[in-house]
């Protein structure tokens, strides 16, 4: 009946995760700044070598293994850095100078732009699905390659996911905690694919909106 409906009262007035002291589902998309803030990656070794001349770091790995997260963490550590993401379905956009210059999906660099960048001599951090060490060396770079995501680390996953829950805290007081056993189970199911874990956990948390009791991450 028009004017009497109560089909959607909670979409406007509710706090779907308020019952567990969260203001949002912790496993949704984040802004790049948040991703950098919440990254659980050890970049000290990488940052240590970036002040050397004509050096290039490349991260090679499948999607969801932490290439972009590492770059964002480096960007947070080094304010002079510039981060560029090369989109698949658009022409190459502007590429600024940066110290270091970080290029995500670097395998998509058009040949002429690649020449311009590699001949600049800037310190480079590249995330790529293809090994670019040959062209880099031909421009005089020393290349350090990190291959990511060969095996999942349950402790790292545990810390990473609990940080995301903490970043969604509504007020002071207890919030749900993902157990180490849950983290181990996630690694068993998804290996090192953190993005797949987040997607699974998003749906798990979403099933429990306006619920009560205890948050369950694994059925």
């Amino acid at each position: 009946m028009i004017g009497q409906s109560t089909i959607f009262p909670k979409v406007r007035c509710g706090r779907p995760w308020g019952w567990c002291n969260l203001f949002r589902n912790p496993f949704g998309e984040l802004t790049p700044d948040e991703r950098a803030e919440l990254a659980v990656v050890d970049i000290s070794e990488i940052v240590g070598v970036l002040n050397q001349p004509r050096i290039a770091i490349q991260f090679i790995g499948e999607c969801g293994r932490g290439k972009t997260t590492r770059m964002l963490a480096i960007g947070k550590e080094l304010p002079e850095a510039a981060y560029v993401y090369l989109e698949e379905d658009r022409p190459c956009g502007a590429i600024p100078t940066g110290y270091p210059l970080m290029i995500d999906e670097a395998q998509r660099l058009p040949r002429s732009v690649m020449r311009t960048i590699f001949s600049s001599g800037l310190t480079l951090v590249l995330a790529t699905h293809r090994d670019l060490s040959r062209p880099l060396r031909s421009f005089g770079y020393r290349v350090k390659t990190y291959r990511l995501g060969r095996d999942g680390d349950a402790n790292l996953i545990w810390e990473c996911l609990n940080r995301r829950i903490e970043a969604s805290r509504l007020n002071a007081g207890p919030i749900p905690v993902l157990s180490r056993a849950d983290a181990a189970e996630l690694v068993r199911q998804f290996g090192s694919d953190i993005r797949a874990m987040e997607s699974y956990l998003y749906d798990q948390v979403q099933k429990q909106v306006y619920s009560d009791g205890e948050m369950r991450f694994i059925d």
């Binding site: 022409p91 502007a94 100078t97 311009t116 960048i117």
Partner: peptide
């Protein structure tokens, strides 16, 4: 001035011949 551009974009018509762009 924030930073100079190494490459101003493939479809950018505004760059001067031999000039460059800065953010």
């Amino acid at each position: 001035v924030e930073r100079r551009l190494l490459y101003a974009g493939s479809d950018d018509p505004h760059v001067f011949d031999g000039g460059y762009a800065v953010w």
